[in-house]
Design a protein around this nucleic acid. Structure first.
Lengths: 162, 162
DNA sequence: ATTCTTGCAAAGCCTTTGCAACTGC
DNA sequence: GCAGTTGCAAAGGCTTTGCAAGAAT
């Protein structure tokens, strides 16, 4: 984990069941949903739908593409996952039990580095107030090259000069 | 315009021709490209490919979808346009002659409000340095409801109470 | 004349959806 | 048993691409 976890009193599954039960029309908890939650919260990663489908299949847990998308939407709505727009496809990360943060995204190796910034929060508050804008969310991504990829590039450059 | 323009010495078209000429394999300047640049820089808007295609057609300037996409890519590469990732589709805005800025995006009416923030720039510098990350660009979007849509909502709420 | 660009239609990629079969509650 | 869920395959929305015809230098 890149950042310290936040203490939470319920398991992700319990929190999801609570969410399902609290809907206007109570919704059902299925085996597929349980498998997805168990898998997703057994690790801390940024992942997209396609990766998740493959990983579940690899673990012998077949969940159809449609169900994966449908369940991801519910997990986001339930506050268990955050949805991230890194480029054209959606990524997901833990929300429940994990602090708010922003990302550095390496354009070479796709690595996501997390960081927290109080300054960002205050910019959002200030700007919103100034424009009488009711802020409900934000996206902040810094794109570039990570330390390792930078070093690789440097090394290659040195070798090229020999 | 939401922000003061930046003084530039060349016309967008001149700058684009310079870009084309400076390519390893010199590229050609076409009527379609000229029409697109004239249209795009005759106003200051955030637009997407589909809107641009329709607007050009409405003005009697037919440019095919493929050419619009191909030319937009070149305009971005040439530094004339910035590409923005607002949700699933790409938006474009002036880069040449326009200052760096961030956006508030209204989820109700899709309005884009521009703002500048020195604090953001310094967060980027600091975080990048701290992680030995070579930053090359960033995305910062605050989502929510704009003043007008907020008022509309308030008004409706009042009316609902009568 | 050469080589790049255009336009068309087809394909690609990610995500959503209609519908019959299935399953929690 | 009823109402919500699944899986499949098809459709959707946006963007890219192969290729023959056309245009810039």
């Amino acid at each position: 984990m890149s950042l310290p976890a936040v203490a939470v009193s319920q398991s992700p599954e319990a929190k999801f069941r609570e969410y399902l039960a609290s809907r206007p029309k109570p919704q059902r908890f299925t085996d597929q949903q349980r498998d997805m939650i168990n898998y997703i919260f057994s690790q801390h990663d940024h992942f997209d739908a396609e990766q998740l489908i493959e990983d579940l299949k690899r673990d012998g847990l077949g969940v159809s593409r449609a169900t994966v998308y449908r369940t991801l939407a519910k997990l986001v709505d339930a506050g268990l996952l955050r949805r991230l727009e890194f480029g054209p496809r959606m990524f997901y990360e833990h929300d429940y039990g994990y602090p708010q943060h922003e990302h550095l995204v390496c354009e070479k190796c796709e690595k996501k580095i997390e960081f927290q910034s109080a300054a960002i929060e205050s910019v959002i508050r200030d700007v919103a107030q100034q424009h009488h804008f009711q802020a409900s969310g934000h996206t902040f991504i810094i794109r570039g090259t990570c330390r390792e990829c930078n070093q690789a590039k440097m090394t290659k450059r040195r070798l090229d000069l020999i």
